[in-house]
Design a protein around this nucleic acid. Structure first.
Length: 764
DNA sequence: CTCCTATAGCTTTTT
DNA sequence: GCTATAGGAG
């Protein structure tokens, strides 16, 4: 228990053991930030602080999970489980469910994801007879989101000169009305969007001092990771909860603040000193991750930003290689160069695929890289883009679950009322909706209201609606009486979803089927493990956990040894031996959206800093002179960021990298090729026929565990589970097809699994 | 009401 | 290049 303090450097140790009073930990990239946070919590626990008195907030589920695992390894799983540790969104969702009634919400409120919110906005815009070309759902959504994150409720919005001015200026003066309707719709439907989870927490704390009192009394110690990424809403929650015990420890790095677009305020960390009197400052400046070259190069560029807390990040690792810079003629060539380099590096250094990461600014860039990697037969995994939970078939299934848990969830209802097709079309829904509006009731209550017979629908249509609502009511009873998995299977069958997938024999249809099954498998695992732990395992409970999950959270065992493809944003907090940053061109990185303002540009620079500092050994930067955008060829020049890195840390590679004239003096190099190319963003028709590479529709993640059928699994065998990893079979029981195996997993502990669902792979 | 085809519009970044 | 929507035929 004591040895956890060993191996910490003096600065880290100070940050760990000084647990009383406010603390600001400025943690440079790779300086062991997570380690300090974990140890600090372990230290608190060793001083007999009860785990449920510690609140620890992160931004991603992944970060929370990792930290919890590390702590569990020190203090044991039982203790760790009592910690209040999770993302802002999940922790405050938990609190909001407990206190929902006080805000007039059902505690079974469901969550709208971004798409649901946009759909709702779209229908409001339509109802208000506004032009959806002007009031684009995405833009309106971000205005509303920004307001919510600044705690500006609809009423305040109308009085907010600046916001109203901006809306008038962008010719969208009625956004505040849309906002107001949006909020009342959500309230009426018993749903919250992502921002509501934080906003409503603030409202709860403000309107119910007793509730606030309860929680601020409970949380003796509060820890916040990535503090530079908090928005006003999050900032205020932390401040309120911390005002009693004042043991607020925030950890962050202003140089890595990259989320201003979703309301993050870098000022929160810059102003910590003003908010928390008598705070202590701890600076972690030694980078344990990267070579000196990488750290120095990253420093040389981040110092170009004006607004930052002074610190000197340094490395004592070997000097290392210079940053390689590749130049390609086209995006396709860029992909091939990178793929080739990965292949060669891996051979030369005897590295594994998981040591490599390919980072880009935009998700769309992944495609071209995928093509190249596939051509070279290199295995990869992609994070981001359309995640598992955003796939249509998965969302459809989840919509059924949502509707059953909360029948007023209108986006869920609209999504599936005619899916699979049951003859309830647009006209019918318009009638039903307008009636619902006229009596100011949710659609669902209209459906089950006898008055529906008088709204001008014919008998056939009424019967279809009736059949649908009967079905949903039946599902509702199941959800109350059955565990999640059984209810989910009933719903999949009863709704006709399963039949729909089964009868579709096309490649895509099979993919949908596999995804739907994968979802059911997930529910099966959830149901079993909750049962074991003696916790609730209804479908509602499953839905609660899943609504805030993202792609990042589903780490598959089979994906372990693969090249990682992700956006730079998604890579924050991660590290890889070899990092490739691709598409480093003007207009791309920095993004053309950001180059107008200093603020935007500085954030892009920080983002670039994040990209560089992901690497342990080698950074490779590449850019292409031309690339396909919207199916059209466009030209770009290299990013200014390449020029901003001190030249002595760069190694310009490849024959085509520079015009002959620029070869002599290194200082002239970049200037000459920066000015030489055609303006960024200019597009023109290709003069030649660009060969189209048809993308074979290979699923990004494959779910088949080929070869070993689970039926011959015996006691004592080593097996591999896609989520739990490696484990040993302790016991096999039950008759086919319901054979159960008890497996002890190295990382996940003992689990009981139904062999027909758990895709176990036999290892030896 | 459903299915099919043409076309507009599009790209930050994520909980 | 891709996807979401609108419009038209059955």
């Amino acid at each position: 228990m004591q040895d956890y303090l060993e191996g910490l450097n003096p600065a880290q140790r100070e940050a760990v053991i000084n647990t009383e009073g406010p603390a600001l930990v400025i943690a440079g990239a790779g300086s062991g930030k997570t380690r300090v946070l974990t140890m600090r919590i372990a230290h608190l626990l060793s001083k007999n602080v009860a785990p449920f008195r510690i609140l620890s907030l992160t931004f991603t589920n992944k970060a929370a999970r990792e930290m919890k695992n590390r702590i569990a390894a020190i203090v044991g799983e039982r203790t760790a489980n009592y910690l209040w540790m999770g993302t802002f969104h999940s922790i405050f969702m938990r609190i909001l469910r407990i206190e929902a009634k006080k805000l007039g919400y059902p505690s079974s409120f469901t969550i709208y994801d971004t798409q649901d919110s946009k759909n709702l906005i779209k229908s409001i815009v339509k109802k208000m007879k506004l032009d959806s070309k002007i009031y684009k759902p995405g833009e309106v959504y971000s205005r509303i989101s920004s307001a919510k994150n600044s705690l500006v409720v609809p009423k305040a919005y109308a009085n907010d000169k600046e916001r109203m001015e901006l809306d008038r200026f962008s010719r969208k003066p009625r956004i505040h009305e849309i906002y107001s309707r949006y909020v009342s719709e959500c309230y009426k439907n018993g749903v919250m969007d992502f921002d509501d989870l934080l906003l409503n927490t603030n409202i709860l704390f403000r309107s119910h001092p007793d509730v606030l009192q309860k929680y601020k009394k409970q949380f003796d110690y509060i820890l916040v990771d990535e503090y530079q990424d908090t928005n006003l809403s999050q900032y205020l929650i932390v401040k309120k909860l911390g005002e009693q015990h004042k043991n607020v420890c925030v950890v962050g790095d202003d140089a890595q603040s990259i989320y201003s677009f979703r309301g993050a305020k870098i000022e929160n960390i810059l102003n910590f000193r003003n908010d928390y009197n008598g705070y202590r400052l701890f600076k972690l400046e030694q980078n344990y991750r990267s070579t000196q070259n990488i750290v120095n190069a990253a420093n040389s560029i981040i110092h170009k930003n004006s607004n930052q807390i002074k610190k000197t990040v340094f490395s004592e690792k070997p000097e290392g290689n210079r940053i390689k810079v590749f130049n390609a003629y086209s995006d396709m060539e860029e992909g091939l160069i990178v793929a080739k380099d990965i292949f060669e590096t891996r051979m030369r250094e005897q590295a594994s695929f998981s040591d490599f990461a390919l980072l880009y600014r935009l998700n769309v860039q992944s495609r071209i890289m995928e093509d190249a990697l596939r051509k070279k037969n290199l295995p990869y995994k992609i994070y981001g883009g359309t995640s598992f939970y955003q796939r249509k078939e998965v969302k459809d299934m989840l919509a059924y679950f949502r509707l059953v848990v909360n029948p007023n969830d209108e986006e869920a209802l609209k999504r599936i009322i005619n899916y699979p097709v049951r003859g309830i079309g647009k006209t019918t829904m318009e009638k039903v909706e307008s009636f619902a509006n006229s009596v100011n009731q949710p659609i669902w209550s209209v459906l089950i209201n006898p008055a529906i017979t008088n709204i001008g629908l014919n008998a056939g249509t009424l019967k279809k609606l009736r059949t649908f609502s009967d079905m949903i009511q039946q599902f509702m009873q199941m959800v109350n009486s059955l565990p999640a998995y059984d209810a989910a299977v009933e719903i999949a069958n009863g709704s006709g979803m399963r039949r729909l997938f089964q009868t579709d024999t096309s490649i895509e249809g099979q993919g949908r089927m596999e995804n739907a099954e994968e979802l059911l498998n997930g529910i099966q695992e959830f149901t079993e493990s909750k049962k074991e732990e003696g916790e609730d395992n209804s479908l509602a409970d499953f839905l609660e956990g899943v609504s805030l999950l993202t792609d990042q959270d589903t780490d598959k065992e089979e994906d372990k040894n693969k090249i990682t493809l992700m956006t730079v944003h998604a890579a924050k907090g991660l590290e890889f031996k070899y990092v490739y940053i691709v598409g480093v061109e003007e207009g791309m990185f920095p993004s053309s959206m950001a180059i107008e303002s200093t603020k935007g540009l500085e954030e892009e620079r920080r983002l670039f800093y994040v990209a560089l500092t992901r690497a342990e050994e080698q950074v490779t930067i590449s850019f292409a002179k031309s690339r396909l955008k919207y199916g059209e060829l466009s030209f770009a020049k290299p990013s200014r960021f390449v020029g901003e890195i001190d030249q002595k840390y760069l190694e310009l590679t490849g024959d085509n990298i520079l015009p002959a004239s620029g070869r002599k003096k290194s200082s002239q190099r970049l200037n000459s090729f920066q000015s030489r190319n055609i303006q960024a963003g200019e597009t023109q028709r290709p003069a030649f026929n660009y060969k189209k590479t048809k993308r074979t529709d290979e699923p990004k993640v494959s779910f088949n565990y080929s070869g070993s059928s689970s039926s011959n699994i015996k006691e004592g065998m080593e097996v591999l589970h896609e989520r739990f990893g490696k484990g040993k079979v302790i016991n096999v029981s039950g008759e086919l097809p319901n054979t159960k195996a008890t497996v002890f997993f190295e990382n996940a502990g003992q689990k009981q699994l139904l062999l027909k669902f758990a895709k176990l792979k036999i290892l030896n």
